[in-house]
Design a protein around this nucleic acid. Structure first.
Lengths: 245, 245
DNA sequence: AAGTGGTCTAGACCACCTT
DNA sequence: AGGTGGTCTAGACCACTTC
């Protein structure tokens, strides 16, 4: 029994169709590299115009679930490990996907005037205050990383320790409390060595190699929202990303 | 004087329009964050149907040159550093963008049976031969990284030292000689320490921290084409990536 | 020749924002 | 109310692949 399109549903038809197709892919109803029904067939099957069919397929192609070959058909992508491609993942979402229990110890949560370099990245005038969140990130109860976030918010948009503890994910708070949806980010990764202070918080030897991840996050309208530095233990973390043209 | 759409041009109209809009953005004719003409206005201006207009705009939105706000308009994105987002950059393209002169020393170029783990990633049966390319990568004449590529090719699709030296970029050879266009890649980054052998080739001390980048590259039809391991000197390389939803 | 995806038209109505 | 982008229709012709 297959779901159908409900014209009275608030969700757009192309979106409903994309969900249906997506499910058939996830369920393995269609084999990898095998063709899905042609656009004309889908038109008949779901009683939707071809333009709308194509819009649904476009979404799935962009997300990497399907690929098209001109004159031949549309095919199911052979799915690799993760299905979420290039998602802007928060630390907690990221770990959950890998089957590790995320946790955190909040070291600091206060309004400060950050280093000038940070203000420049956030495109704020000198002397501006930002919300600074310092946390030790845990995976299965053991330290994995040391994270410092600088958030470009109004003083009225405050985040409390309670918010942090109940939501877990900072990005969920940004979305649900302030309607800020991360849409793009510039990231850099490099190697550094742990200072004695960092080492003690991460429970490793001073001088151990660390993976330093810096991220500048932009919201829907391309305004910088957050600058983050995360120091990962070299022995416990591997950064993963999927790129596409 | 503005370009117009030529209906007899082989290029699709949405593509021609996207180029025109793109140029106006690049030339600074439209300020960042200012609205471009509405879709109905563009319909009149270029005598193209709205569907086609939207297709052109869709492309530019996906590439990050424009953003839409429902009920308000379509706006020019404030461009950051690089304009190419999330591109699958080859090492040489990558360095050139940063203003560093790329170079290479080819250590090895031969057909071998690689480790099983590599064959699995390339989805090849045990015992298959692949083309193995080992290179020291240089930036301004100094070693930056140690790169080992395993290429899934037919024995008829050979690459010679002359190819490598004249083209510089491996990806250019794949594209021009075999019509293989990289379209997606899974990358991981982690920290390791240099073995004595690696250290001598990179001209650093044994035990120095390195950034290990592994990449599995897929072609148009999502077939694995190449598996690469690159060991970067921790003191000379920073990995950069732009992510988007 | 028949089937597939790629491009395009000329409409329509809706949801959202501004005035 | 009027303008904007968001969704949708029912067609059409073209380019490419397969038989």
């Amino acid at each position: 029994m297959s779901r159908t399109i409900d014209p009275y549903n608030a969700l757009p038809k192309y979106y409903q169709l994309a969900s249906i197709l997506r499910q058939k892919i996830d369920d393995g109803e269609w084999e990898p590299r095998s063709p899905i029904p042609s656009e004309r067939q889908l038109e008949q099957l779901y009683n939707i115009s071809r333009t709308t069919i194509r819009e649904a397929i476009d979404h799935l192609v962009r997300q990497g679930f399907l690929y098209r070959e001109h004159g031949r058909g549309t095919f199911v992508s052979p799915q690799k490990l993760q299905k979420g491609l290039m998602e802007l993942t928060s630390f907690s979402e990221d770990l959950l996907k890998r089957g590790i229990q995320p946790g955190q110890i909040i070291l600091e949560l206060s309004w400060i005037v950050p280093p000038l370099k940070v203000l420049q990245k956030l495109e704020l005038p000198a002397g501006s205050e930002v919300l600074c969140v310092k946390r030790i990130r845990l995976g299965d109860q053991t330290p994995i990383g040391l994270q410092t976030s600088y958030l470009s918010l109004n003083r009225s948009q405050n985040i409390t320790r309670e918010d942090m503890e109940s939501a877990g994910s900072l990005y969920r708070i940004l979305a649900e409390k302030f309607g800020i949806i991360p849409s793009e980010a510039d990231e850099t990764l490099e190697v550094t060595l742990a200072t004695p202070e960092e080492a003690s918080m991460l429970e490793i030897e001073p001088g151990s190699p660390l993976l330093l991840n810096e991220r500048l996050l932009f919201s829907q309208n391309r305004t910088p929202v957050e600058f983050v530095k995360i120091l990962y233990r070299g022995d416990r973390y591997r950064y993963y990303v999927r790129l596409s043209r």
